[in-house]
Write a protein that binds this DNA or RNA. Structure first.
Length: 309
DNA sequence: TGGAAATGTCTAG
DNA sequence: TAGACCTTTCCAC
């Protein structure tokens, strides 16, 4: 259940521990056996995230495109470098083979009881439905439950990338902001729907959509066409900051203005991290009005009818 | 043990 | 808009 920040962290993990290495690729589950055979034995040369899509490049001009969808996750084991200096290190705890798993994609989880921290064997046997296993001499990545997992040629990668709207981690410049503003403000579709459209902006999912709109005090039903350009620019800039923060922490922390204690509490308690997401019926932190939930484009949309008026 | 839910996207009608 | 798809987790029974 990842949004853009998670996929960027996954790309960083591959960049740190897999790029430059020869990869043994397999499909323990069997459903990706043919694709894995194409990649097996080649060297990973590139790792890129755009929005929620991951592109891993190999030295023979083949690419692996992965979209985690709702349930997908990567588990990293073996040698795992910290992906960001400010993040708590879930992976490498000093020893080169501190085989602590890092799961990325449905929340990043430390090991639970029963997980094998000091795994005596490497690689460990696959657990569950592992679609793809990518292995170097020291590191291992297991992919489970992706919506998309396919081997592409460079021209096909270009097509897939061209379909994606701007991602502030990829395009930090003013051009990307202008593209976003133009696409958001040229349609009559509700802004709550446009923010989820990956052709308008890449990487926003159901949590960030609700939170960005609350932070802007913008009614999700507002038609894109009627959103003033400066408000649209504000949405882009807020998304830019939230995304960078999410990549840094590995956590979606969308409430701001908290004192240290409240902040620590919110970090520890998932339900306290957000202004409105999953808070249906609870009082708005700002005005006390019960948070509303409704279905927009097939997803649960949370919002405060008083603040976002 | 069974069902529902989950940070997503695509297709058919 | 409904249904399909992919997998795991959590909670009620």
């Amino acid at each position: 259940m990842p949004e853009g920040h998670t996929v960027h962290r996954i790309a960083l993990q591959f960049r740190a521990d897999f790029v430059g290495h020869r990869i043994a690729a397999s499909s323990p589950q069997g459903r990706f056996a043919a694709g894995a055979a194409l990649l097996d034995g080649s060297t990973m040369v590139e790792s890129r995230a755009i929005g929620k899509q991951l592109f891993l490049g190999f030295d023979d001009d083949r690419w692996l495109r992965v979209h985690l969808g709702l349930y997908g996750a990567w588990d990293f084991r073996g040698r795992i470098s910290p992906v960001h200096p400010e993040s708590p290190v879930l992976g490498s705890m000093g020893a080169p083979r501190a085989a602590r798993a890092v799961r990325m994609g449905e929340g990043e989880l430390p090991l639970r009881d029963g997980d094998d921290v000091a795994a005596p064997e490497f690689p460990p046997p696959p657990i569950g439905q592992v679609r793809v296993r990518l292995l170097t001499e020291e590191s291992l990545a297991d992919l489970r439950g992706p919506t998309a997992c396919e081997v592409l040629q460079p021209d096909e990668v270009a097509v897939a990338m061209a379909r994606l709207g701007p991602d502030p981690m990829v395009d930090p410049g003013p051009e990307a902001e202008a593209v976003f503003v133009e696409r958001l403000t040229s349609r009559a579709t509700p802004v709550g729907q446009l923010l989820m459209d990956q052709a308008v902006v890449s990487g926003i999912g159901n949590v960030y959509r609700a939170e960005i709109l609350f932070r802007a005090r913008l009614d999700p039903h507002t038609r894109g066409r009627t959103v003033p350009a400066e408000v649209a620019r504000g949405l882009w800039r807020d998304w830019t900051e939230l995304l960078a923060d999410g990549v840094r922490r590995g956590v979606m922390m969308t409430r701001d203005g908290l004192d240290d204690d409240a902040h620590a509490l919110a970090l520890a308690d998932q339900t306290a991290r957000h202004w409105v997401y999953k808070r249906a019926g609870l009082p708005c932190y700002v005005c006390g009005t019960p948070i509303q939930v409704e279905t927009m484009a097939g997803r649960n949309l949370y919002w405060c009818p008083t603040c976002q008026d």
